[in-house]
Amino acid sequence: MTDPIAPQILIVDDARDIREPLGQYLRKHGFRTRLAAHAAEAREVLAEAAIHLVVLDIMMPGEDGLSLCRWLVAHNGPPVLLLTAMADETDRIVGLELGADDYLVKPFNPRELLARARAILRRAPPEPGRPPRGRRAFAGWVHDPDAMTLSGTDGRTVDLTTAENRLLGILLDQPRAVLSRTTLLDLAAGREAKAYDRAIDNQISRLRRKIETNPKNPRILVTEWGGGYRLVADVTDAG
């Protein structure tokens, strides 16, 4: 049985005969995996699951892998391992220039992909800001930053994306304080990405959908007009 806090890898490839066997192989070697057949499906997974690495095929119908890679880097997403065709040297170079962490040429040996994935995860930078914190309770939730999850008093467990996990940790560090968008961007920027105020707004909206009873009328994570955002809750250590 896979460890529930093991790193989770998203495999994005339109070829079913690649993504499904690869998912099984990575699970066999201790990783959790999610699968997506195209970029739109990958975005849905990234919005609701804690993903530590994206294995991304460049050549896909619709939005291609380079476009999704660009979006991931711009939105401070997880590291990217590109899968490329033998003849696509230009695409490999462009992918690395966009911010991909590594690439692998098809056809590839799964053992090599496993080794490259482990290497990327080992060198992934720690989250910026304060040192890692343990589990903390607030407003009927317990945040586990290592597992990137929220546990509710009703027994529900909610996955957080890397960006959501980082942002929530920052808010929990300073409960009831008004944090401007600029401050949140400065504290949350974990990669050299060109982030914008709107990126923080989008992450706040996604967090509200996960923690608020009524996200349209938030009571926990409130907006301070002209100021930024404030977590309105007491925060305690949860062991």
Rank of each mutant, 00 (worst) to 15 (best):
P61N: 01
L72W: 02
L53Q: 04
E97D: 11
A87H: 07
G99T: 01
K194W: 00
R118H: 03
L121H: 04
G152I: 11
A195H: 04
P7F: 04
V73C: 03
D186I: 13
G62F: 11
K216N: 11
A147H: 06
H29E: 13
L82Y: 03
H29C: 07
L113M: 12
T161K: 06
R198P: 01
V222K: 11
A115I: 00
E192Q: 15
R130N: 08
H52P: 05
V158M: 13
A147Y: 00
A49T: 11
L167I: 08
A199D: 13
G227R: 12
G140L: 09
G239T: 14
T161N: 13
P128T: 05
N214V: 08
I120T: 07
A37D: 08
E44V: 14
L150W: 03
V232A: 15
G99D: 09
V12T: 08
P126G: 08
L66K: 01
L10S: 03
L114S: 02
A40I: 02
D146I: 15
N109M: 13
R123Q: 10
L98I: 13
T153A: 15
L53F: 07
L46V: 14
G190N: 04
Y25M: 14
E97L: 09
A195S: 15
I11R: 02
A233H: 05
V142G: 06
N214E: 14
F138H: 03
V55G: 01
V178N: 14
L171A: 07
L66S: 00
L207W: 10
Q174V: 12
R111A: 14
K28A: 13
D144Q: 11
A147D: 02
V178A: 15
H75W: 01
T157H: 07
L113G: 05
R123D: 01
S67G: 06
